[in-house]
Amino acid sequence: MNRLAVRKTLKLFIGGAFVRSESGRTVACELGGHVMQAARATRKDARDAVRAARAAWPGWCGRSAYNRGQIIYRLAEMMESRRAQLADGLRASGSSRVAAQREVDAAIDRAVFYAGWCDKIEQVLSTKNPVASPHFNVSSPEPTGVVAIIAPRLPALVPLVSTFLPVIAAGNSVVVLAGDADPQTAVNVAECVATADVPAGVVNLLTGCRAEVAPTLAGHMDVNALDLWLGDEAVACALHDAACTNLKRVRRHKEPDASFWFGPDAAGLAWIEPFVEIKTVWHPAGV
């Protein structure tokens, strides 16, 4: 007789802890041939996540870039050691064995890629400016702050990590609303994050309904930037409009084909630049 499996409760990941929705509500999803209940984040969960992200942010951006790189590399290590778990999760939501493995490998490699970016961003995006007066003048990037990401729906893994990794690599903290197609994979990613020395609150992962959570994040006055991956133009417009209340930096994309996430444009400096602010510092040079 086969051993009876122990099923996992799919929770939200807020402030470094796995929690149920404050409302106690869940959303049913069929994964791997059986129905699971995923936590359904509410407006208050989104608020809590933003609070956690804000609290974590000064510490995260205050760490050395080298240290952030080490932590993201540790995340890659955790993902590597959970390859089977991640792949099983993808297969449960319908991926083939080959496709699932390919996606997991791509996701891990992406983490390694951004681990290496942390201490390059400032160098690549800084200029020393030859001003026409006796002043030392440098422009360099700083993280924007708390970034909310409305992640693409599918596939479940590579887009999720591809959107939040560059943002935290730059020193931001994030609240990610995962796509609703596969909440289990979002939780699997959260488990990797939770075991990778990522400080609590730097990455917060919510599952639930976009229509419920996204407007809260878009309108939240303590969120500094919004990364929107939405096929529905009208919804994107409405969220963008709400984001203008405190002039969030907004990046808007339609949801691309799955193949995009494995192509050359799915990672790079262009994924970091929208979530940094250029600060220019002047100082006289003279005796």
């Binding site: 200029t127 400016n129 030859p130 001003v131 026409a132 007066s133 002043h135 003048n137 422009s139 250029i278 220019t280 002047w282």
Partner: peptide, 8 residues
Amino acid sequence: KFDPTSAF
């Protein structure tokens, strides 16, 4: 202070 080479 302002300068064309300096971001603002």
